[in-house]
Design a protein around this nucleic acid. Structure first.
Length: 423
RNA sequence: GGGGGCGUGGUCUAGUGGUUAGGACGCCGGCCUUUCAAGCCGGAGGUCACGGGUUCGAUCCCCGUCGCCCCUACCA
């Protein structure tokens, strides 16, 4: 916990579009390492590809990181704005004979013999024979620097001690190491995270659909739940713990426990976990959040009766929307429930509810249970027709609270409509 | 083609030279119950990729094979 005073990590996304969960996880792991060791989390935008590095794309990254509450201590630095530094080092490499011009471009000289070893915290030592690596280009013929050079120089200049990034960079690492060596610089520690794959087994990318951070936000996930879930995609703590507050994540996260094999994003499990976070909030807090999202007010009573059923905040409207607007009746529900004397029972329920005083949950419950006794019915025979009449569906919160929340006038009116239709 | 990485139920993972291979999501069933969830209980599902070794004994150690993925760009 203390040896980390000097630890400096960076998240260095290239702004090619929305930040997807793979990038988000890389950011999270870097952030966790920094916070765990009281180190520094640097944000650097790798925008040397001018075509794709639009202002909007860059803004999306900030936006995603802010929503995830992954705050950076330094930056954001723009790699593009550092081209003078890159050019300086390219010139130096050429001047010192480490690199040479080839048809206008600059290539680094890679020795034919020997090897470069990557020391990876997660994977151990990885050896690359030089003969398998060509002299690679470090600057275009227009003089602009290429990724491997820019990344190596920036990591060095920014004092990065731990490079934590996706495993797709493993093969780039020996190249960056060779640049660093030619520059006479020390190598940072590397940690290559297992890639995230789509269900098709391929590296996760834009084309895998609902995988961007902003989509998760729009679908009603909580940042804390997303962080918890993402932490688990490629990292495990012990044989039974998987629910971690952010503080626990910071305390327990170590690179040594990161797994080596690729993982597949499973939205079902995220949904489950998000539901768990939702249920642990208190109703007032959740109501406030939903009021912010929907622009409505006074949602707490509705939240109290639906909270246990929600998995995402967007579920709220599906579950409670009938309280605020009449929903078209689900025909399957109607035909399933409105038979065998259901209309008569519903009519009796209407009578009973018309006289409930006060019209609250206890009053409704008393009236309805008394009626069930009187008619000698299975409770569902009475409650389901009411449910369908007022919500349009066989699925809703508890019937007593539902009726009480809807209020007498609206309840009776909806029952009347149902009765009219039933006859 | 060359180089590199990875391989534990459908998915995420724990694990050790000797375990009934543990947990979670999902799935199925039960309880609860006014529906659906939640919660609790139970169940199905794994030849620990395959084949050889080493060993009294391998999921775990070694070698090979296969599969998947990444890099092999004047992309990042």
């Amino acid at each position: 916990m203390t040896e980390g005073e000097g630890i400096r990590v960076r998240f260095a996304p290239s702004p090619t579009g929305a930040l997807h969960i793979g990038g988000a996880r890389t950011a999270l792991y870097n952030w966790l390492v920094a916070r765990h060791s009281s180190g520094t989390f640097v944000l650097r935008i790798e925008d040397t590809d001018r075509e794709r590095s639009t202002k909007e794309n860059i803004e999306q990254i900030y936006d995603a990181l802010r929503w995830l509450e992954l705050d950076w201590d330094e930056g954001p630095y723009s790699q593009a704005e550092r081209v003078d530094r890159h050019r300086e080092e390219i010139k130096r490499l050429v001047d010192e004979g480490h690199a040479y011009f080839d048809e206008g471009a600059v290539r680094l000289r890679v020795p034919d013999e020997g090897s470069t070893t990557v020391h990876d915290v997660i994977r151990g030592e990885i050896v690359f024979e030089h003969q398998a690596i060509d002299d690679f280009v470090i600057a275009r013929s227009d003089g602009s620097p290429l990724y491997n050079l820019a990344a190596a120089v920036d990591d060095r200049d920014m004092g990065i001690t731990h490079v934590i990034r996706g495993a797709d960079h493993i093969s780039n690492t020996p190249r960056q190491l060779m640049i660093l060596e030619a520059l006479g610089s020390k190598a940072p520690v590397f940690a290559h995270l297992p890639l995230l794959h789509g269900t098709d087994g391929k590296k996760l990318s834009k084309r895998h659909g609902a995988a961007s951070v902003q989509e998760l936000r729009d679908q009603g996930y909580l940042p804390a739940a997303v962080r918890n879930y993402l932490a688990l995609l490629g990292w495990g703590f012990d044989d039974s713990t998987e629910y971690f507050t952010t503080g626990e994540l910071i305390r327990n996260f170590t690179l040594e426990r990161v797994s080596k094999s690729p993982a597949v994003f499973d939205e079902q499990k995220l949904r489950w976990m998000n539901g768990r976070y939702l249920r642990e909030m208190d109703a007032a807090e959740l109501a406030e959040l939903l009021e912010r999202e929907t622009g409505r007010s006074g949602l707490q009573p509705a939240v109290e009766v639906t909270q246990e059923k929600m998995q995402t905040t967007t579920d709220f409207w599906k579950l409670a929307g009938w309280l605020y607007e009449r929903r078209p009746t689900d025909e399957k529900a109607w035909s399933k429930v409105m038979k065998d004397g259901a209309a008569e029972n519903l009519a009796r329920a209407r009578e009973a509810l018309a006289n409930v005083e006060p019209f609250d949950q206890a009053g409704v419950e008393q009236a309805l249970t008394a009626l069930v006794d009187e008619l000698d019915l299975k409770p569902g025979k009475l409650y389901q027709p009411i449910r369908v009449a007022i919500t349009g569906s066989t699925v809703s919160p508890g019937i007593f609270e539902s009726v009480a929340l809807l209020g007498r006038d609206e309840t009776l009116s909806r029952i009347d409509d149902a009765l009219a239709r039933a006859r």
